[in-house]
Nucleic acid binder design. Sequence first.
DNA 1: CGGCATCCCGCCGGATACTG
DNA 2: CAGTATCCGGCGGGATGCCG
Lengths: 128, 128
Amino acid sequence: MTANSHPHSEPGCRAVSEVLSRVGDKWTVLIVKSLQAADEDGRRFNDLKRDIGGISQQMLTRTLRSLERDGMVARTVHPTVPPQVEYRLTDLGNSLAVPVMALADWTFENMELIHANRSAYDELANAA
Amino acid sequence: MTANSHPHSEPGCRAVSEVLSRVGDKWTVLIVKSLQAADEDGRRFNDLKRDIGGISQQMLTRTLRSLERDGMVARTVHPTVPPQVEYRLTDLGNSLAVPVMALADWTFENMELIHANRSAYDELANAA
DNA sequence: CGGCATCCCGCCGGATACTG
DNA sequence: CAGTATCCGGCGGGATGCCG
């Protein structure tokens, strides 16, 4: 940790917030999870698209590019006809998956409670 | 866990993604961290605003409302003149803070690497 | 097959002004 | 002090079409 100050400093928290935005992006978790399941083999573009379901080509491309830029995902092009492109998680991507999945587990465990809280809150709002 | 299927199922992952969007929101982490520092005492609206810095009243209000709706934050109004409103994390909010801070630590540890990756990526893009 | 370019709409989020 | 209301620019993200 050679960066300035500690993880809970003001600027540090900003940076955390920024990366969390990437992780918290609508599609990132789904993509990371799909790539994690594929493991070493990697996964091709349209396989990824099918596996995730409901994502547009554009958003899949955009999100993969962002992840690639951050070094989370490796992109390998096989110059065949038709072209083949494989995506797989890098070591960095795999290490990210650990805390992300921990958060995912927390979410899953508390999901019902959260939804119940929302319902209760909305009901009170409607009563007024 | 009485919800359908396991944490890594398709619909489960969707739900996770949804809640991660709340957590990954631009301001949520900063707010949660500030409230966590205040602990039992809670924190008042403008104190929160000052402590975070750079957030507009509107977004502070909006984000606090969302967190309150999800049951992460408790809002207490003291009917004095001028009015006082205290915000503090609920048990749910505090339990969320655990995996979130783990993710924050990961981010902090890998921040330099990520930025280096971005620079390298952008440089290659410019070369073309 | 695996993209990139374009159009378009909705909401995120900032700035400002007003209220109890 | 702690909001709500309004305006508005920007971008997230879907649909479609074209290309190597």
